[in-house]
């Protein structure tokens, strides 16, 4: 139930990420056009808008990759084989990510406040619009990694039950 909800949530993020990448082309393209062709005036805010979109794209991609388990890892120790070792191996990773996610969330709230007292130079936009992505990422990671941890424990339980 919660798993399916998080899945939907992640699908929403996927659509949003695709849209952001497409949208990224607009300010950068305008900047080139403006300077080179003179068709449109040189807007000094294009670079600012591009980095806003960019920050969000990176943060959303980083959130999803925790749900999908696609952040790159390095495999030097061999795969665990027994159910308990599998739980420990996967569980350790998920516990570390969840712990960091909680730090990111807690201090991310402070960080968002720090953004809130600033306005961007060119567009005079309140910087909360990008800084808020930090606590949101922390919250989403906590949900995603926390749920994966729950799943790992359930898989272990089912296996040990099946073995008995």
């Amino acid at each position: 139930m919660i798993g399916r909800m998080l899945d939907h949530c992640c699908n929403g993020l996927r659509v949003l990420l695709g849209v952001l990448i497409a949208a990224l082309a607009i300010p950068v393209g305008m900047q080139v056009l403006a300077r080179y062709t003179g068709i449109i005036p040189v807007y000094l805010w294009t670079e600012e808008l591009a980095t806003f979109i960019f920050v969000w794209a990176v943060m959303i991609g980083a959130m999803m990759a925790v749900w999908d388990g696609t952040h790159f890892d390095v495999r030097v120790i061999p795969d665990a084989t027994s159910p308990l070792m599998i739980l420990l191996q996967d569980g350790f990773v998920l516990v570390m990510i969840t712990a960091f996610a909680l730090i990111f969330f807690w201090y991310g709230i402070e960080y968002a406040k720090f953004g809130y007292i600033q306005n961007s130079v060119m567009m005079r936009a309140n910087m909360l619009i990008t800084y808020i992505s930090v606590p949101i990422a922390g919250a989403m990671w906590t949900l995603f990694a926390g749920y994966r941890l729950y799943e790992a424990v359930m898989v272990y339980k089912n296996r040990t039950v099946a073995a008995q």
Binding site: Q31, V42, L44, T46, E47, V121
Partner: peptide, 21 residues
């Protein structure tokens, strides 16, 4: 430099200011 007053001043003296890192 990337501040509105800079662009405004140099536009006022008829130059074509541009945003470049």
């Amino acid at each position: 430099m990337g501040a509105p007053i800079q662009a405004q001043v140099f536009s006022a003296i008829k130059a074509a200011p541009s945003a470049i890192a």
